[in-house]
Amino acid sequence: MKLDPKNLPLEYSTETNKLNILGFWIFLSAEIMLFATLFTTYFVYVDRGVGSGPAGAEIFELPPVLIETFLLLTSSFTIGLAVHAMRINRVKAMIWFMVVTLLLGAGFLSVEVYEFIHYYHIGATLQTSGFTAALLTTLGTHGAHVTMGLFWGIMIIIQILRDGLNARTANKSFIFSLYWHFLDVMWIFIFSFIYLKGMM
């Protein structure tokens, strides 16, 4: 995105803000490597690491996965709306969109917890095989990121309520939206290459 230097959005308005956003992009590239390593590991174990445990096709269930995907994709849309509201300086709308985003995120997490309990009941635990360990670690790392995002989002909402929209809070909200979109992209990879590929 090429920004007009005379008319910078609030989140880019100070030197510190610009540095923070650049720094966060660099952090996201490290996160991409992190998930890339997890995916690679998963692909290594998905066929050869099953041992005596169940294979992916035997444990995956489509409905919860579809619900998770729907919730997270929608939340990515709503956080986009929140940033848009921020750009046109409608604080109230922005906060509401952020709340909706976090609620959708919480919904996603609850379904994921249900999914994990389901795996536990059908005997696919962390300890079952190399495959289940790789699967649950990949999903768990993503889930932990979402959880972290929930708390982070709450902190930001509190600060906007307290201080209103200024260079500082706008910067934080924008960075949070980058993070949230990133988690969504990672989920699309998980959905396609772990679930869909595994069920085929």
Binding site: R48, Q127, G130, A133, T137
Partner: peptide
């Protein structure tokens, strides 16, 4: 390295099978 160490920790402290010699470990 972060992920490799995480897998090592899970293996050692939660008895997963990433790098073991059984149950699909490599």
């Amino acid at each position: 390295l972060t992920i490799a160490l995480l897998m090592g920790t899970l293996d050692r402290q939660f008895l997963t099978n990433f790098f073991t010699t059984s149950d699909g470990g490599m």
